[in-house]
Structures are given as structure tokens and as C-alpha cells.
Write a protein that binds this DNA or RNA. Structure first.
Length: 328
RNA sequence: GCGGGGGUCUGGGU
């Protein structure tokens, strides 16, 4: 079962839920009976694929077959519904779980608070947060991040800051993701300066801006009519050795188009194509007489290695990655 | 000792 669990979990996380389900069926056909863990894996896979209804069906099936869900199973189900479902559904589910003996832990609270913020009920989110504290559960970095993000999205910058302060007073150290949530909020409100200074602050605290950080900043600049700034951030990002993702390109291309800079957008589009195609990149950068296709590039590398020129082969690969071109 | 649960990013006639 453990082996199947690893594989099925892998399929689920790659978004290949159908393959996961097939393998699950096959496993049962082979006479291996599923345990709580593997049920939980498939259940959370279904939730990830936005199939919470099927996930609930699986939960029922699991119980009917005499396999008892544990707190992790319940949490997985709860989180699925919290992310996509309506709030009534969340509380309905919660009630039925509690009737089955489920008690709330830090992760359950996180999910519920997340769900409340999602539908804009931040007052209630806040009171659930206080409830958590009263239960002598120590709030951790993730709940704080949810609170901070929730408040900033609701435009409640002050409340968000109160959370930041409370968090630091308690000795909880923010990570990149936590900063990102705040930066996002600032960007959405047009507080680009504050967002930038947060970015600087995070570097001082050993948290390094990642692709997502830059995406937020670029998005913020674009949405506030500062496309030039967005372009600068993009360049800075590359200099910092941070790989632009598809999202980065889309964000900036969209911003450029909306600002009427169609030519720039086109250039960026080419750059994006080059970035996903190592051979094309080499062709352009080395002015080789012929464009290598993927295969001949691979052959080239292989030949160099065969003849002991590892260093040279390695250099080519490094050159690619240095220029944000990821070899396949 | 091995497998499962909570937080951050773009666009698409709404």
C-alpha cells in the first residue's frame, strides 16, 4: 500500500487525477485493501482537482468499507471545501465532522478562517482567530499569513499591521510567502513605495524575493499605470537571478498591451519563446550558422561529454541557465 | 526510520 501511496500521491500533485484514480482502482483489483492514508491521498487529490463532491463520496465510501478517517482525512476534506465551496457548506461539514468526534486544531482553524476571508466575512474570521487563541492553540506562521492576507485584501491595512506586530511580538518570523501576501496587498492598493520597501526589508531578514514577489510588484506597477517601472522590475528580477515564469511574462505582456506598447509586448513575447527554447537561444547568442534543434543540441552535449569535454558541455548549459533559458 | 492535511502570483466576449 505504501508504494501505491507514493505513486498515487505523485500523480495527484502533478494534477493527473485520472491516472491516480486508475491506479487506485488497479490496486484494489490486485487485492490490496486501501488504508486511511491512501484514502486521504486520493481524497485530497480530488479536492485539488476541484472535485470536492467526489471527494465527499469517497469519504462516505471509506467509512462504509470500515476504514476510519483520522484528523488528517477530515482536514483534507475541510480544506477542499474551504477553498472552493460556500461558507454554509463549510459549516455544515464542520458540524457533521464534529458529530463524528473531530476536534479542531490549528489547521482546521486556518481553513475556516481562510474560507471566511474568501467570502469577505472578515469580522467572523477575526473572531475565529481569537477563539483559536482562547483555546490555547499557538497561532503559527501560516494562520498569521492568512490573517494578514485576508485583511489586506479587504483593504484593512491597519488590521493587517496589527497582525504583523502581534506575530513578531510572539517571535514568529515571517517567511517569503508571508511577505509576498503583504506585498500583494500593498500593490493592489497602489502603495507601490511601501511594497518596494517591504521587499528591501525582507532581504534584510534573510528572506529572499522570489519569482512570486516580483510578479506581485510587476502586476502592481502595471495596474497603477507605471509600465516603465514594471519593465525595470522585470530587468532587476533577471539580474537578481530570479527566473521569470509564464505568469511573469503574461503579466507584463498584458500590462504593455493595455498601455498601448504593442511593440514592446511583441518583443517580450519573442523573448519568452526564446526562453523556453534552448536551441533557439544558442542560435541567436552565438550567431551560429545554423539553428540547432533540440535533438542536435542534445547530441552536441552528448558528444562533448563522450570526448571528455565535460567542462565545455557544462559551460554551454551554464550559459543557458544564466540567461534564464532552462535546458530540458 | 518509509506514504497523506492548512498560507502568496497573470490573462481569456461576465
Amino acid at each position: 500500500v505504501a508504494t501505491y501511496s507514493i505513486l498515487i500521491d505523485c500523480y495527484c500533485k502533478l494534477g493527473k487525477i485520472e491516472d491516480a484514480l486508475n491506479m487506485f482502482d488497479k490496486m484494489i483489483e490486485n487485492g490490496i485493501s486501501p488504508d486511511t492514508i491512501i484514502y486521504t491521498i486520493v481524497l485530497s487529490g480530488l479536492c485539488l482537482a476541484n472535485r470536492t463532491y467526489d471527494a465527499q463520496g469517497l469519504l462516505d465510501k471509506m467509512i462504509n468499507s470500515g476504514c476510519l478517517p483520522d484528523s488528517i482525512t477530515y482536514n483534507a476534506m475541510l480544506s477542499g471545501v474551504c477553498k472552493t465551496g460556500g461558507i454554509d457548506e463549510v459549516f455544515g461539514l464542520l458540524k457533521s465532522f464534529q458529530d463524528q468526534g473531530y476536534t479542531l486544531g490549528i489547521k482546521s482553524y486556518s481553513c475556516i478562517i481562510y474560507a471566511l476571508f474568501r467570502v469577505g466575512r472578515f469580522e467572523e474570521a477575526n473572531s475565529w482567530f481569537r477563539k483559536l487563541c482562547e483555546e490555547n492553540i499557538t497561532p503559527d506562521l501560516k494562520v498569521y499569513t492568512i490573517m494578514i492576507q485576508g485583511f489586506t485584501e479587504a483593504g484593512k491595512i491597519k488590521d493587517a499591521w496589527t497582525m504583523v506586530q502581534e506575530m513578531t511580538e510572539r517571535g514568529v518570523v515571517p517567511d517569503t510567502q508571508c511577505y509576498n501576501a503583504l506585498i500583494r496587498g500593498f500593490c493592489e492598493m497602489g502603495l507601490l513605495e511601501d511594497a518596494q520597501s517591504l521587499k528591501r526589508e525582507m532581504s534584510e531578514n534573510n528572506c529572499f524575493p522570489d519569482t512570486c514577489t516580483y510578479n506581485h510588484l510587476i502586476y502592481g506597477a502595471c495596474r497603477n499605470g507605471k509600465v516603465e517601472e514594471a519593465k525595470q522590475i522585470f530587468e532587476e528580477m533577471e539580474k537578481a537571478g530570479c527566473f521569470p515564469s509564464v505568469i511573469t511574462f503574461n503579466t507584463l505582456i498584458d500590462g504593455l498591451c493595455k498601455a498601448g506598447e504593442f511593440e514592446e509586448a511583441r518583443l517580450l513575447f519573442y523573448k519568452m519563446e526564446i526562453g523556453t527554447n534552448p536551441s533557439l537561444f544558442l542560435h541567436l547568442s552565438q550567431c551560429t550558422d545554423r539553428a540547432l534543434d533540440r535533438e542536435s543540441l542534445q547530441n552536441l552535449i552528448a558528444r562533448l561529454c563522450d570526448s571528455g569535454l565535460y567542462l565545455k558541455a557544462y559551460r554551454i548549459l551554464i550559459k543557458l541557465t544564466d540567461n534564464c533559458v532552462l535546458p530540458d
